[in-house]
Design a protein around this nucleic acid. Structure first.
Lengths: 330, 330
DNA sequence: CAACAATTTGAAAACGTTTTCATCAATAAC
DNA sequence: GTTATTGATGAAAACGTTTTCAAATTGTTG
């Protein structure tokens, strides 16, 4: 029963030294082309495959990156992660995926884990609390955040300001004046979208009517339901992510109200269901794949040149107009 | 600038040998409790963290498993993978996620990659073609398949036979007779569901009316559209996964037909949108989290005891009755 | 032709662990 | 009282690479 061949066996088979074989395989031009061919032939003949653990130990490069998201079941993160994995495997890099569940303790734990794995870098969607917890500590790998900002880490996210401008402008153009907003309170993104919403409303000379809430379906359904029951519902509602949008829609439906006649509804995140419900919902579609791809590119960049100054990339979303925000008739 | 402390530093600090420190940290009861405490204290004081690469090289255990799915953006695989990752991290094991895109070449490539990573095992959702490609080769890690069977590998999947029985029984009970079926042709699961459908139909003395097709939304939409245009539509239609169900619904809607009055619709996979569309769709909900959890458990089991005979676990799905299959009135 | 630079190679160290093997003391068995 | 047995420890080998350093060869320059 033959042992798996090591670089040593290749060396023996080709009559060369360990060092030469290693260099030939690394293909960094430090070895005579003729001998390199000899090595390659011998390796091929033996069916040699490198031992990655040994390589990583010696070279101190794990060829691995970390990806910490809130929950992979959120379609936004699913799409982003797919883009990141595509890019990573293309470059021979592995991805370690972790779900933080928006839990600061888990975030901290996984970041520590990443240190032990000696990853080359981490892509991360931090909660608000992460900022505080992480403020002091410094990592021996670069950090890129997606969707949400954190300290002085590079960041790639939707252009929230532009997105809320588009939504508010669209609603105003269609005759809505009393426009309410729902924004998450666990991430910097909720804050950013809230602020953008307020400024867009002011630009139109309108009074903002915003709620900050835990970004879950249940919380949104409850909150919107209470507003509706209280009888002071706005003419239109903007929900700042997929889950709150869903909660809002359920609350409205539950009470037998019509969209958009009784209340118009729009949101962020072009999830599959938003197009399938009746009426279909107007949303800002995030460039999810592009976000992942860009994050990966930025990470590679910074691994290569750590001294670069901080970069914040804001990608434009696309306003997808559907029936839930038809021009106001009343 | 202090170097990161190694086990050597811990040994020096505690006045013990490398070996003893290693054993103390492994906590396998081979060391005096008192000295173990001394080691732990020293490690804590120095902020020692083990070097995983070194550990993996020496112990030949990567503490990593592979997960190869068709596409993580498919909600079924998203949910399963979440369960697997939860279970894995709980046991201190990493997961390497790969997307095969139902491409046999990618499947083969990732399996080779897994060999190089020296994973302890792999969880895999193989295409039909994988069977042929893999038939000969043998891996130095155990393989568990999910959703689809492959050769003599352990398998955990939905109880397809029971699921289609439930669907057909339900439709028949509600007065439908001419029941059509759409089944994927790239996986063993499509085959299994098709066969189960046929046998259920026969059991009721009905004539099966099945199509095998590429399991994409577009293909299903096209095919169902053609059937509808040709005017020989069945009274009810069963779609064997989320994507074909979506395609079928679009084709029906596109032609302005009513569900279930003109044609009833039911499927497999309780994706979020199936509950939100009008009318909501009757489906078999797969125990996705349970499938992932069970797969992980089986893998651990087999890593521990490789000699076990083959195991096939069929988990029951839940029939979720909604409006798309209301009792037939005509 | 001597001196120096560039290219190519090999011997051996290093990476940070785990594991094997031997040692030693203390206890148990005869 | 000797001999096994057990328990705890340390020295050193091993895991399979990459990297450092020196040596050997070749080519280049003055």
């Amino acid at each position: 029963m033959a042992m798996k061949p090591s670089i040593k066996d290749v060396a023996a088979a080709s009559g060369l030294s360990l060092a030469t074989v290693s260099r030939a395989l690394a293909d960094n031009g430090l070895v005579n082309e003729q001998t390199r061919q000899k090595v390659l032939a011998a390796a091929e003949a033996l069916g040699y495959r490198p031992n990655l653990q040994a390589r990583r130990l010696r070279s101190k490069q794990s060829q691995t990156i970390g990806l910490i998201v809130a929950d992979i079941r959120n379609p936004f993160f699913t799409a982003v992660s797919r883009a990141i994995e595509d890019a990573a495997y293309r470059e021979g890099i592995r991805v370690l995926l972790c779900n933080s569940d928006e839990d600061p303790a888990k975030e901290a734990m996984y970041l520590r884990l990443m240190q032990e794995e000696q990853v080359g870098g981490v892509i991360f969607s931090p909660t608000l609390s992460a900022a505080a917890a992480i403020a002091g500590t410094t990592f021996d790998f670069p950090l890129i955040t997606i969707d949400r900002a954190l300290g002085d880490a590079d960041c790639v996210a939707l252009n929230n300001h532009e997105a809320l401008d588009k939504l508010v402008d669209h609603l105003v153009a269609n005759g809505y004046r009393r426009i309410g907003g729902l924004f998450g309170n666990t991430s910097a993104t909720g804050q950013a979208r809230h602020d953008a919403y307020v400024s867009a409303m002011h630009r139109h000379g309108l009074t903002p009517d915003a709620h900050r809430l835990v970004p879950t379906m249940d919380a949104a359904q409850q909150l919107v339901g209470d507003r509706l029951d209280a009888g002071d519902a706005p003419e239109a509602l903007i929900a700042s992510n997929g889950l709150t949008l869903l909660g809002a829609m359920r609350a409205i439906r539950q009470r037998g109200l019509r969209i958009p006649d009784d209340i118009a509804l729009a949101g962020i995140d072009n999830e599959a269901w938003t197009e399938l419900v009746e009426p279909a919902l107007t949303v800002i579609g995030q460039p999810t794949y592009d976000i992942g791809d860009t994050a990966m590119r930025m990470l590679m960049n910074r691994i290569h040149e750590p001294a670069l100054s901080r970069r914040v990339v804001a990608l434009s979303g696309e306003l997808i107009v559907r029936d839930s925000t038809r021009p106001r008739t009343a």
